[in-house]
Simulated scan of single mutants.
Amino acid sequence: MTSLLTKEPAVLVLEDGSRYVGRAYGARGTTIGEVVFATGMTGYQETLTDPSYAGQIVLQTAPHVGNTGMNDEDPESRRIWVAGYIVRDPSRVVSNWRADESLDDALVNDGIIGISGIDTRAVTRHIRSAGSMRGGIFSGEAAALDAEEQLRIVGDAPQMAGLNLSAEVSVASAEITPATGERIGNLAVLDLGVKQATIENLAARGFDVHVLPQDVSFAQIQAIDPVAVFYSNGPGDPAASGDHVALLREILDERLPFFGICFGNQLLGRALGLGTYKLPFGHRGINQPVMDKTTGRVEITAHNHGFAVEAPLEGSFDSPNGYGAIEVSHVGLNDNVVEGLRALDIPAFSVQYHPEAAAGPHDANYLFDRFRDMVIATQKDNN
């Protein structure tokens, strides 16, 4: 299996006027999004199919991408979600016995516009200094557009801050995955961009996993008689998800056990009464060090987030919305960003990273066991 690389021109244009000329890769045309970088050396298929990347043009810092192709077993969702894709050196040959198609072909089939042959290190260093920003990839006929016109198109695109993308990535109707472990009960999963590996991990802990649309009501959640509720990862600004926060407050008011990851962590923070803010260039990759403050253990974790929760890192504090004592449970060691929250008076906790990481480290997989134990303990307390 081979991928025929092109010499057709393409250009990456950032909103500050920076331009990087390279070669067309994947589909042809124009795409606009927030340009971010992901530091994983492996796992590009999982990155591309992670719904959290919706609306973002993803740059791979690893220079050589595509040598293992794409397969039908590892996608995290039903399609590729990135708004665009930037690589330095796409593989000319696919060499893996599990591959079903080349990365280039997969990008074309899903209509994902990319660019190759640019200095990705230079772009990464620029974003680290200036912050994530809007950008556009122009290839095919669009590559010949006037530079000022290309920049105008980028400047007219919406900012990620204030953007709600949950409806774009969520399921249209409920989907159920039966428990594969000793059954505990029904789990309501609010699909804000859930990954397949998350569903599989929850089912393995004994939950019948009900993946529900992002606009579900509390009455509809109650109708499945859940033993707990889970908020998934997903794209967008948590400050633009007021309905999801209001729903979560109803869940917390009923003392239903709750676990949230990534976007779910930010929404728990807002439901508890805390603020969120946009990070300069976010955390994206599979090598982020985080300390579990309960154990003092440092975990290498997988991240994909551009927003974070504002909260005091030391000691406990009262929830501004009346949910009792709260503490920051995990802290990012690169920049002291809040990476986890734990409620001390209600059964609720969350983390900012991906404990189901694939590809990536499995240091944080224990969090699914912690959730299971919390649900079982709550059931015993209520009986």
Rank of each mutant, 00 (worst) to 15 (best):
L14G: 00
I115C: 05
P9M: 04
I118A: 01
V58P: 01
R23H: 15
T124P: 07
P51S: 10
I118P: 01
D104I: 04
R121Y: 13
S129V: 13
I86S: 00
T39S: 15
R128Y: 09
Y44Q: 03
A10G: 06
T31H: 05
G40I: 04
T120V: 14
A10L: 05
I32R: 01
S116E: 06
I112P: 05
S77V: 06
T31R: 03
V94P: 03
L48R: 04
N67I: 08
N96D: 14
I32A: 05
R92K: 14
D104F: 02
S95C: 06
A24E: 01
E34R: 08
I127R: 00
S91P: 11
E73H: 14
N109H: 12
A38V: 13
R78F: 15
G84K: 01
A122N: 10
D104T: 03
D16S: 15
T47W: 07
G43N: 07
G29D: 04
S18D: 09
S18E: 12
T120H: 04
M70S: 07
L14W: 03
T31A: 13
V82G: 02
S129R: 15
D100Y: 12
L107F: 02
Q60H: 14
D16Q: 10
Y85M: 06
T49A: 04
V82K: 01
G84Y: 02
G17I: 08
V82F: 03
G131M: 07
T61R: 12
P63E: 04
P75F: 07
F37P: 02
D74C: 14
G22C: 08
Q60L: 10
R23Q: 10
S132G: 15
G69Y: 01
G117W: 00
D16R: 07
V65W: 00
V11W: 02
G131R: 07
L107W: 00
R92M: 11
G40R: 05
Y44E: 03
R88E: 10
N96C: 13
S95D: 13
E73Q: 14
P51Q: 05
Y44I: 11
G111W: 08
Y85Q: 03
H126L: 13
T61Y: 09
N67W: 11
A99K: 04
G29L: 09
G55Q: 05
D104W: 05
N71G: 14
A130Y: 13
A54M: 11
V87R: 00
G66D: 02
S77L: 08
I113H: 02
R78M: 10
G66I: 01
V94T: 08
D119K: 05
R28S: 13
T120M: 02
E46K: 09
D105A: 15
